Computed example of a mutant assay.
Amino acid sequence: MTRSPTAAQRRVIDAADPVTGRLRGTATQLDALVRRGLAFRHPRPPHDHFLTPAGHRVRETVVEPPEPSEPPAAPAAGVFAAHVGGTEEPVVAGPARLREVHSAWQGLLELRRMTHTDGATDRPCAWERAHLVQAAALALEAAGHPPEAGGSPGYRVRATPQPEAVAVHGPDAETLRACAITLQGAGWQVGEYTQPRTGARYLLASPRRV
């Protein structure tokens, strides 16, 4: 069983890139995380360090803070999350969000290149298969599709009982076709289906492996 990281190691893990899991720290810190099975050193230059699946799980585990003895400091900036659609509040858009989405998508392509043995960027990587909804939503948002939010029509990405598959809903056939084209271009296998009870059409998308 992997031992819990120290406070210093936890800070390094928490500061990892939210999409790629790339780490920044001293050689001693990074080596210690590798020994604990929480990180790996990529064999190709520049030999960056990345979180392993166990390291990602540690980063996603919420640590309960102690009771504060003084007023807490202002919270740090939130971790990037793609819009999955279906929110009540309007989505905040603008140049800053566009830059965040572009940076996250480029980071994901780099993660594909670094983690596929052939360096391919045209198909999803292990991180995407472990974060299906976020990965599919990022591909859609990065391509400029608007999510459903605040009463405005758009896509919605939802988990499904099927392994390695997400459902993508849209307000009309045109939206679904556009989303299908985007996901196929991003390395996903996509099929269109009909809900038996409602007759509504939706997409079922799975990460392509080859």
Rank of each mutant, 00 (worst) to 15 (best):
T6W: 05
A7C: 04
A7K: 08
A8C: 03
A8P: 03
A8K: 09
V12Q: 04
V12M: 08
V12R: 07
V12S: 09
D14E: 13
D17M: 15
V19D: 08
G21S: 07
G25E: 10
G25T: 06
T26C: 04
A27F: 02
L30Y: 14
D31Q: 05
A32W: 00
R36E: 15
G37F: 01
R41L: 15
H42W: 02
R44H: 08
P46E: 06
D48R: 12
H49D: 01
F50L: 14
T52V: 11
A54P: 09
A54M: 04
G55N: 06
R57Q: 14
R57C: 02
R57G: 12
E60R: 15
V62L: 11
V63A: 13
V63L: 14
E64Q: 14
E67C: 07
P68Q: 09
S69T: 07
E70L: 13
E70R: 15
E70K: 14
A73W: 09
A73E: 11
A74M: 07
P75V: 13
A77T: 14
A77W: 08
G78A: 12
G78P: 06
V79Y: 02
V79M: 02
F80T: 10
A81G: 05
A81V: 00
A82F: 06
H83E: 11
V84G: 07
V84M: 05
G85M: 12
G86M: 15
G86Q: 14
E88R: 13
A93C: 13
P95C: 09
A96V: 06
A96F: 03
E100C: 07
H102W: 01
H102Y: 00
A104N: 09
L108T: 00
E110W: 06
E110G: 01
L111N: 07
R112T: 10
R113S: 10
R113P: 10
T117Q: 12
T117K: 11
A120R: 11
T121I: 13
P124Y: 03
C125A: 15
W127Q: 06
E128N: 06
H131Y: 01
L132R: 01
A135Q: 10
A136R: 02
A136N: 01
A136P: 06
A137H: 03
A137K: 00
L138Y: 05
L138W: 05
A139P: 01
L140P: 05
G144I: 08
H145T: 13
E148W: 05
A149E: 12
S152G: 12
P153N: 04
Y155P: 01
R156G: 07
A159Q: 07
A159S: 08
A159Y: 06
A159L: 09
T160Q: 09
P161Q: 10
A165G: 01
V166Q: 01
H169V: 04
H169D: 13
G170M: 03
D172T: 05
D172M: 09
E174P: 00
T175L: 03
L176N: 07
A178S: 09
A178P: 00
A180C: 10
I181G: 06
T182K: 12
G185N: 11
A186P: 01
G187V: 05
G187Q: 06
G187A: 01
W188R: 07
V190L: 03
V190P: 03
V190R: 03
V190C: 04
V190K: 03
G191I: 14
E192L: 15
Y193P: 00
T194M: 02
G199F: 14
R201D: 05
Y202K: 10
L203T: 00
L203C: 01
L203K: 00
L204G: 14
A205H: 11
